[in-house]
Amino acid sequence: MNAEELLGNLHEGGDNKPREKKSPLISLEKDLSFYAESIKEVAVEIMVEGISSYPIFIAHQHEVNIGELILNRADLNTDWTIQASTLEEFVQKGIIHPDKKEHFLKSYKKPENYMCVFVVVPEGANFVYFPYKLS
């Protein structure tokens, strides 16, 4: 599976010119704080139901073809949509190569304390761990 299939069409406008804009991570932090209780409930449900011990949440502002929609930015008047997935789906879809699974597991933080978020932006995607409660 290639990036376009996974991420859908992320490029708006075809000029490929760099755009000056503030970091999307500022609004992501705000939304994750707002969503934290709901995301934790889904993470616990994924683990308790035996679906996976490794829930992963996808944060995006475009269309992605992985996971199940749990929090829609259009419905909630926020900047980011959140979808729920698992390590197993990430391996199945080829986002995490099977050879890199052990490396990923070593860096995976306790899902009781942190949400594992795969952040998708037009420039690419990366994993971040966001604590459920900021001190």
Rank of each mutant, 00 (worst) to 15 (best):
I95M: 00
K109F: 12
Y129E: 09
E112D: 07
D79M: 10
K93N: 06
N9D: 13
P24W: 05
F127P: 01
D75S: 15
N72V: 11
E12Q: 15
I58H: 02
L69S: 01
N126P: 12
V64G: 01
V120C: 06
S85R: 00
N77S: 15
A74E: 15
V119Y: 07
P122I: 02
K100Y: 15
L6M: 04
D31Q: 02
Q61M: 11
G67P: 01
S27F: 09
N65Y: 08
K22F: 11
L28V: 02
L87V: 06
S135H: 13
C116E: 05
G124A: 02
N2H: 12
E88P: 04
K30P: 08
P24Y: 07
K22A: 13
K21H: 14
H97A: 14
P18V: 06
V121K: 03
Y129T: 10
L71K: 04
Y54I: 07
M47L: 08
I66W: 03
D75G: 14
S135L: 12
K93A: 10
I39W: 03
E123D: 06
P131C: 00
T81L: 00
E45F: 10
Y35N: 04
K17S: 09
P18M: 07
P122G: 00
P24N: 06
K17P: 03
N16Y: 08
V42G: 06
M47I: 11
I46S: 06
P131H: 01
N72Q: 12
K30H: 12
V120P: 01
Y114Q: 01
V128F: 05
H62M: 09
L7E: 08
M47G: 06
E20F: 15
F57P: 04
L105F: 12
D15R: 00
E37C: 05
K109G: 08
E5D: 15
K109P: 07
F34G: 12
V119S: 00
I96L: 05
V48W: 09
E102L: 12
D75H: 13
N2T: 08
F34Q: 08
E12M: 12
N72T: 08
K133Q: 10
F127C: 03
V64M: 00
E89K: 06
S27G: 07
V48A: 13
N9M: 10
H60Q: 08
E29W: 13
K21W: 14
C116F: 10
E112H: 08
I46M: 10
N65F: 02
E112F: 09
E68W: 10
K109E: 11
K109V: 10
G94L: 03
I51S: 06
S33M: 09
E89W: 03
S107D: 14
H11M: 09
S85V: 04
L32E: 00
L105N: 10
I70K: 05
H97Y: 14
G13H: 00
N9S: 13
N16R: 11
N65L: 03
E12T: 13
A3C: 09
S53C: 12
L10P: 02
Q92G: 11
I39F: 04
